[in-house]
Design a protein around this nucleic acid. Structure first.
Length: 614
RNA sequence: GCGUCUGUAGCUCAAUUGGACAGAGCGUCAGCCUCCGGAGCUGAAGGUUGUGGGUUCGAUCCCCGCCAGACGCACCA
């Protein structure tokens, strides 16, 4: 183990490796011992810095009391430089305590690693495709889109930080039957002025109205269908309209993305794959995976897995036994994956197969990560299964569907379209900025107008983003203005505030003690509050790695919140500028600087700004 | 009917994925500004982790059965 370290791995990984060696050496005849040594940060300070509970697990295999096993591992020599002691505690825990100097050096190394962000380069140049945001052309982005956007962008950042080559792809909804409906409506009742002024809401109005008419007027519906067919056959006029709609919509999306600081490496909408769709279906049929059914071409997922077939057969029996023919009929729908519709058109299944295939062929990715709401879980399960069986995706490519919970209204019900649907994303961001501005003005009355507004924007957006990432993606969010825009407690601004306070303190430090070079000092870790901070900093690389492994930015949000909390406790109790002893003062200033660096970096991965003042 | 997800403090969520005494925020109550930024800090109250079994040295976490809610189930994505 190396104290001042090149950051090739995380501290916990190095300690685990050390213990693994010792377990293996102590019990060479036991295969289970060879894989022991898992290490996690200790539950409480009294239990050292890291703990290992594997001795208890091995007790059965080794037929020895857990404490005896732990003792043997703990007493092995020599103790590496970084460790002060290894103790056996409780029923058989191994508690590892770091030497303060080693902890301080390690914390500084993590914070100072500007190039790699203190994070091991486990990606090693492999490729990850991250598919997120994916709004629909001719529809406004609303609060339902923000989770995919924000979570996906954070995951892309994290994979990049870990040394992966990332392809961030915005798979926008720019193809499908809705365009016939819009084109028909556009021809009949478009308000050209409104379209010029603010195109997307007008397109949305056109779609809604045309769609409503199609529902009650069969002739209208047929006309819409014909427009779709014309578009898909390449009719120049319809294609020009369609491209116009895309251009207008993308312009509106880009305004939001600019504001959110979201970037993509590529934007390939569904239409991009359109030329490949016929070939996909042909190959599925040729391979025997797809067949004709009720006029459509379908893949029956049950054909790929006898267990599913059996499960399905039982479900039908159970329904029939109760005379529930409706449920029995529904059963098919769960397993039928339509790849060509009765009318010869293709749908999202076909497009998604083509997308999968293209991504594998073009990028050779180690992972494909797709971020959508949880209603699409069955769709992606089927897509992944069939893609693998057909060989569209090779076994080396990991497929991940990051499913997040839908956003409901304040009462836990879906937002009803009749009552205006989900709040628009732009409205949300405006409201966030405006609430933040009120506070900025109050706290910084002397700040020039433009600066205050810019700052409020960063704070408001930070609040919105944080609230969407602070919890596990699968959690359903009950929308509430007060929760999304919270500026106190577990919130984005709380983290930003902790960071701004440190920056301010460090500026004052530099001005007050120009001779002291805190940069050269080791972070102070003598007080438990300081030590807690250093331990937290050292765990940063583990947090980032965990985000990638679980595809949950919430892990990083949680980590940063803990770091900020620890800092606030430290700040309250231990003086820095007012500390009499120059050496301690420098050590504390250095520790503060390390915290600020990690906060800024972590917030950066979440896509949240870290202003120097607020 | 079948499937997926979820159930943890009054409310919103954590719990390093099987480890030591289940922790935060909001709200409530009591404190902290002659003190580096109070968007802050300290403390109190608040829990049979939906429920009943099982596995384990050890279960919020894994398995089985119930209960409740959300979502999905043939040409939207």
């Amino acid at each position: 183990m190396n104290d001042n370290t090149t950051m090739q791995s995380t501290l916990s990984a190095e300690l685990a490796a050390l213990l693994r060696e010792r377990f293996a050496a102590a019990f060479p005849d036991c295969p289970e011992a060879a894989s022991a040594g898992r290490v996690v940060p200790s539950a409480r300070p009294g239990f050292g810095d890291y703990q290992c509970s594997d001795a208890m697990q091995l007790s059965r295999a080794l037929r020895l009391p857990p404490r005896a096993i732990a003792e043997k591992v703990a007493s092995a020599l020599p103790l590496p430089d970084a460790l002060e002691k290894i103790e056996v505690a409780g029923p058989g825990y191994l508690n590892l305590t770091l030497r303060p100097a080693a902890l301080a050096a390690r914390a500084a190394a993590v914070a100072d690693d500007e190039e790699r962000g203190g994070v091991p380069q486990s990606g090693d140049g492999r490729t990850v495709v991250v598919d997120y945001s994916s709004p629909n052309v001719a529809k406004s982005m609303h609060i339902g889109h923000i989770r995919s956007t924000v979570i996906g962008a954070a995951l892309a950042n994290v994979f990049r930080a870990l040394g992966y080559r990332v392809i961030a792809d915005n798979h926008i909804g720019d193809w499908g039957t809705q365009f016939g409906i819009i084109i028909k409506g556009y021809r009949e009742f478009a308000d050209m002025e409104a379209l010029a002024r603010d195109p997307v809401p007008e397109l949305e109005r056109i779609y809604k109205e045309s769609n409503a008419r199609a529902r009650e007027d069969a002739a209208w519906m047929e006309a819409c269908r014909l427009e779709t067919v014309k578009l898909q056959q390449g009719d120049p006029e319809n294609r020009a309209l369609w491209q116009d709609f895309i251009r207008m919509s993308r312009h509106t999306f880009d305004e939001i993305y600019d504001r959110l600081g979201i970037v993509f490496d590529t934007t390939r909408g569904e239409s991009w794959y359109q030329p490949q769709l016929a070939g996909v279906v042909d190959r599925l049929v040729a391979a025997g995976f797809a067949h004709e059914s009720r006029g459509a071409v379908v893949v029956d997922v049950r054909d790929l897995d006898p267990a599913l077939a059996e499960q399905s057969r039982k479900a039908v029996e159970a329904a029939r036994a109760k005379g529930d023919e409706e449920s029995a009929a529904r059963e098919d729908g769960k397993w039928i994956c339509i790849v060509r519709k009765e009318d010869g058109g293709y749908n999202y299944n076909t497009t998604d197969f083509a997308t999968m295939e293209t991504r594998v062929r073009e990028y050779g990715p180690a992972k494909i990560v797709i971020v959508t709401d949880d209603r699409q879980i069955p769709h992606f399960q089927q897509l992944f299964l069939v893609s693998r069986r057909l060989g569209i995706v090779n076994p080396e490519t990991e497929l991940v569907h990051v499913a997040f919970g839908t956003i409901t209204d304040e009462n836990g019900h879906p937002f009803s379209t009749r009552k205006g649907g989900m709040p628009k994303l732009k409205e949300l961001l405006d409201e966030a900025a405006s609430r933040a501005l009120a506070i900025v003005r109050e706290k910084n009355p002397d700040l020039p107008q433009a600066e205050a507004a810019a700052l409020a924007e960063r704070i408001g957006i930070g609040a919105v983003k944080y609230s969407d990432m602070a919890m596990d993606p699968i959690t359903t969010i009950r929308f509430s203005w007060d929760a999304v825009l919270a500026l106190q407690g577990n919130s984005g601004p709380y983290l930003q505030y902790a960071h701004a306070r440190i920056r301010s303190l460090l500026a004052k430090y530099a001005a007050t003690f120009p001779g002291e070079a805190a940069v050269d000092a080791a972070p102070s870790v003598s007080d438990p509050l300081e030590r807690a901070l250093a331990r937290r900093i050292v765990a940063y690389p583990d947090a980032v790695a965990a985000v990638a492994a679980k595809c949950k930015p919430s892990i990083l949000a949680e980590y940063l919140y803990g770091l900020a909390q620890d800092y606030s406790a430290f700040y309250q109790k231990l003086p820095v500028l007012k500390c009499e002893d120059a050496a301690t003062r420098a050590g504390r200033a250095r520790l503060c600087a390390c915290v600020a660096a990690v906060l800024r970096r972590g917030l950066g991965l979440l896509g949240i700004a870290a202003p120097d003042r607020m």
